[in-house]
């Protein structure tokens, strides 16, 4: 099984479906791992729990929802950015919220990008496409991160 390039963290199954659909249009859906809440996301990143046997290596990018049960997106972001190994993974907050407090909090925790999910599907489609193409194909990851881990 290949290493996943994108870790999508979202508790809403509909959002997950829409996002995956968008990515599928650009042949990126195969490289997506899905975590259904913050706790699962951390399990995935630390290769523990149900992800203990996953192929090693960090994803190229994490798409992170904020409002989630158990561990919310802010906490996941905080842990990633405070971990010496994980902190180089780009994290894109992908949320419904345009609230100022969410923006400030995310940027203070060194989020790499903050994208508000547009209500209009074509806009949503465009946003996800851009994100997928940019982070997976355009952006150069941290050298050791993807190749060696």
């Amino acid at each position: 099984m290949d290493r996943k390039k994108i870790l999508l963290v979202d508790d809403d199954v509909r959002d997950v479906e829409l996002t995956l659909t968008s990515l599928a249009e650009h042949n990126l859906a195969n490289g997506v791992a899905v975590a259904r809440d913050g706790a699962e996301a951390l399990d995935y990143l630390y290769c523990r729990g149900s992800f203990a046997d996953r192929p090693r290596g960090n994803p190229l990018v994490v798409f992170l929802d904020l409002k989630m049960p158990k561990v919310d997106g802010h906490e996941v972001l905080r842990q990633i950015k405070n971990d010496p190994v994980l902190k180089t993974i780009p994290v894109v907050v992908l949320t419904s919220s345009r609230e100022e407090q969410d923006l400030i909090k995310s940027y203070n925790q060194n989020v790499n990008a903050y994208v508000v999910k547009p209500v209009a599907f074509d806009a949503f489609l465009a946003a996800v496409k851009q994100l997928g193409l940019f982070w997976v194909l355009t952006n150069e990851p941290m050298p050791n991160d993807f190749e060696l881990n």
Binding site: D15, S96, F121
Partner: peptide, 22 residues
Amino acid sequence: FSYSVSHDLRAPLRHIDGFIEL
């Protein structure tokens, strides 16, 4: 209240739109 509205009210709309589109 508004925080919750901002998060939770928008999502279903997006879903309606997305799935109609699909």
